[in-house]
């Protein structure tokens, strides 16, 4: 226990140290003229630019635009992924019918179909949401499917011994038993949905973090570009960590103590 706290503190100290070192080094290589600030900007300049974008409201606008597409895409992916996953987990024929398409989706990089979505939906939010939806769908579907399908056989047998009907087994055994696996799928889906939104925004949008990264890149304004880049990375970490926390909570009963 003591050891544990000690180790965690050590991890925290060293981790912070490394982040600070990176920032300091970043500033120093520019200050000493080793790297041209045009290429990598500097922490100081990025901070200045952060304040500017914060004050003129553009940062918030872009974050909200990205989050809006993200929420739509994730919501759709959750509804479709969990819905289809439950059907496939329960009915073998549904699983078999969908399997070839899911396999295709696994191996095909969704963005290769981006121009197709542009042809169908035009530039803007619908295409961004569609791409991010497809990005997020696979892990949510796959985890739901495996959670429902691999319902614990001992639990199922116990339920049947008390006269459970298929309906009971689905809602009282299979579904609650799948919650941790489904949440794990959600965690993966969250990361992918964000990637999908930002990538699609890089290609064409009129607001959003990805859009502003691409926009400043075209202007060759590294200082300005760094702000949305850091924002995306932070957003990814925060969203995924939040889901990891939920995952740990829902997974609590999985811990088995052998006493």
């Amino acid at each position: 226990m003591m050891m544990d706290i000690f180790m965690r503190r050590q991890a925290l100290i060293l981790g912070t140290l490394s982040l600070v070192t990176i920032v300091v080094l970043w500033q120093l290589v520019v200050d000493f003229g080793i790297v041209n600030p045009f290429f990598i900007s500097t922490p100081g300049a990025v901070w200045q630019e952060f304040l500017v974008q914060l004050n003129d409201g553009s940062l918030l606008t872009n974050i909200l635009a990205t989050l809006y597409s993200f929420a739509l895409a994730l919501g759709l992916a959750v509804a479709v992924g969990i819905g289809l996953g439950m059907l496939s987990g329960w009915f073998q024929d549904v699983e078999a019918a969908l399997e070839p398409f899911i396999w295709f989706k696994y191996s095909a990089p969704t963005v290769a179909f981006y121009p197709l979505f542009i042809a169908w939906l035009g530039y803007g939010t619908p295409t961004i949401v569609a791409i991010a939806f497809l990005f997020a769908l696979t892990p949510i579907y796959a985890n739901t499917l495996s959670g429902i399908k691999n319902v614990d056989r001992d639990l199922k047998r116990a339920a049947i011994s008390f006269g459970a009907r298929p309906y009971d087994i689905f809602f009282r055994v299979a579904l609650p038993g799948s919650v941790p696996v489904i949440v794990a799928g959600l965690r993966l889906g969250v990361g992918r949905a964000l990637t999908g939104v930002v990538v699609a925004e890089l290609f064409g949008a009129n607001a959003g973090l990805g859009y502003s990264i691409a926009y400043y890149a075209q202007m060759l304004q590294t200082n300005r570009m760094m702000v949305p880049i850091v924002a995306v990375i932070l957003l990814g970490v925060i969203l995924t960590q939040a889901l990891s926390y939920v995952e740990k909570k829902t997974d609590a009963w999985r811990v088995t103590h052998d006493n």
Binding site: F39, G191, L194, T195, V198, V199, L202, L209, G210, I213, A214, Y216, A217, L220, T222, M225, M226, P228, I229, V232, I233, L234, L235, G236, V237, T240
Partner: peptide, 16 residues
């Protein structure tokens, strides 16, 4: 952070 976050956002700066 880089494992979780979309590294693809670095694409524009790589192009620069």
């Amino acid at each position: 952070a880089l494992y979780i976050a979309p590294t693809l956002v670095l694409l524009p700066i790589l192009v620069v």
